[in-house]
């Protein structure tokens, strides 16, 4: 389709506006992390890396970062195993209640996080803690995050399985391979890039989650987003928050970018 020159300019300007709307605030945060003025006076009064040094020294930020990494890895691991198994079950087998299971599994991503959070908190408070002695903490955060992380893995693996079709697995069985051998030598190698993409998205999702985390993390063990939220309005901590926010943005973008590259290229599949 060809557009007139003026239309092209108008569309370009509009696109630039939309992108600016999304990214200018992020850039401001980035600039402020180098702003010499403690109160972020604008324009910046000078350039400093002081806040980065302070942030690097901050015990609270480091503990929160470590907590987030552990929660992300834990949730991703659970999501990988459960999401893949369920995807295989729903894509490759017929059983009674299949469509119901499918729906129930997808639902958590549509559920408002606050509802999931409240439900999990009440479960922890009323059942997990009194009966099993499991209080809010890393474990409950991992479980809470896994509920929605599973869906991203499930979606990625399901899409891959659908595209793969069943004839390769049938060919493997036809050549004498048991179902386990078929999975190990045909299905899994072809799923690998889908699994990596799903895992990266799951980790990214977990890493910046705040709503469910608020209800499942204990008071003493905040994740990075929660730590930021808690410290945002403390004048002393504000400069450090900017630094941590920049780190968080970078840490979230990398997995998404890698996942997109893996998911988008079909040609890569044969090479992986």
């Amino acid at each position: 389709m060809r557009l007139s020159t003026s239309t092209k300019w108008a569309l370009a300007a509009f696109a630039a506006l939309v992108l600016a709307f999304v990214y200018v605030p992020l850039i401001v945060v980035g600039i402020n992390s180098f702003n010499a003025d403690r109160a972020f006076g604008w324009p910046p009064s000078g350039f400093t890396t002081k806040w980065w040094a302070v942030a690097a020294q901050s015990e609270g930020a480091r503990a929160a970062l470590w907590m987030s990494v552990k929660a992300g890895l834990g949730a991703t691991a659970i999501a990988l195993v459960l999401g893949t198994l369920l995807s295989l079950a729903l894509s490759r087998f017929d059983f009674w209640g299949k469509h119901t299971v499918n729906l129930l599994f997808i639902l958590p991503i549509a559920l408002p996080g606050i509802v999931t959070g409240i439900a999990l908190q009440s479960m922890i408070q009323n059942v997990m803690q009194p009966v099993f002695g499991i209080g809010p903490g890393l474990f409950t955060v991992i479980v809470g995050h896994a509920t929605f992380c599973m869906v991203t893995v499930f979606n990625n693996v399901s899409a891959r399985l659908r595209r793969m079709g069943t004839s390769l697995e049938q060919a493997s069985a036809d050549l004498g391979a048991s179902p386990l051998t078929t999975f190990r030598r045909v299905t899994f190698p072809l799923l690998r890039s889908g699994l990596v993409a799903g895992a990266l998205l799951a980790f990214g999702l977990s890493f910046d989650e705040i709503v469910v985390t608020t209800f499942t993390a204990g008071p003493g063990s905040p994740t990075l987003p929660i730590w930021i939220y808690n410290n945002l309005f403390r004048p002393n901590q504000a400069p450090v928050v900017n630094v941590v926010a920049v780190v968080l943005v970078i840490a979230s973008l990398i997995p998404v970018w890698v996942a997109q590259r893996l998911g988008g290229t079909d040609a890569a599949e044969s090479r992986l």
Partner: peptide, 10 residues
């Protein structure tokens, strides 16, 4: 021998 050959691409 399958109609779409079903050779293992990897």
């Amino acid at each position: 021998v399958f109609q779409d050959y079903a050779l293992f691409p990897h």
